[in-house]
């Protein structure tokens, strides 16, 4: 939960609307529908970070590797945890090229969808990992992969 001034105004408005709509109808179901819809709106406020949504993932660069991308990423998030960098999306669709500067490993996990191609070959299963040497290049094409996650870091593998 964020507590900036605008967010506080938003929460207060929602609370006032909830109060008014609870008082305003004699029908219990309608009151519950009010609460449900306001809850959904609150959930929408909380799950977005307030910035305009852009569904394109434009790539990432650090000392060990460079990822260039023209992929669409719906419900996207990126981050770094325990030395492993990741990008994940509800839908990941498009082309990415991973260039290693030092030796790194990468791993793609996905739940389903059109398919995942690495260096032009369709990969089966729900996980694919590969070790890249220095200056190694991996050519990734994600074809509408659902709940997909690409991780780059040392010592990654499926299983």
């Amino acid at each position: 939960m964020n507590f900036t001034f605008l967010n506080l105004v938003g929460y207060t408005l929602l609370a006032v609307v909830a109060f008014l709509l609870w008082r305003g109808s004699a029908s219990l179901s309608a009151r519950l529908v009010s609460l449900g819809l306001l809850g959904l709106i609150l959930w929408g406020l909380l799950s977005g970070d307030g910035t305009a949504e852009d569904s394109r993932f434009r790539g990432y660069q650090e000392d060990a590797f460079e990822l260039s991308s023209r992929a669409d990423c719906v419900g996207c998030s990126t981050g770094k945890r325990d030395g492993v960098w990741f990008v994940r999306g509800t839908v990941l669709d498009g082309v990415m090229v991973l260039k290693a500067k030092r030796a790194v490993a990468y791993k793609i996990v996905w739940a389903g969808g059109g398919g995942v191609y690495v260096d032009g070959r369709l990969r089966s299963g729900n996980c694919f990992s590969q070790q890249l040497g220095p200056q190694g290049i991996a050519d990734l094409r994600l074809d509408g992969a659902l709940q997909a996650r690409l991780e780059v870091g040392p010592g990654l593998g499926c299983g």
Partner: peptide
């Protein structure tokens, strides 16, 4: 209670959520 406009607004916004 003449709050139809507010309920309509909530129903409209709630649709997208």
């Amino acid at each position: 209670s003449r709050l139809g406009w507010l309920a309509g607004l909530v129903a409209f916004l709630g649709f997208f959520s």
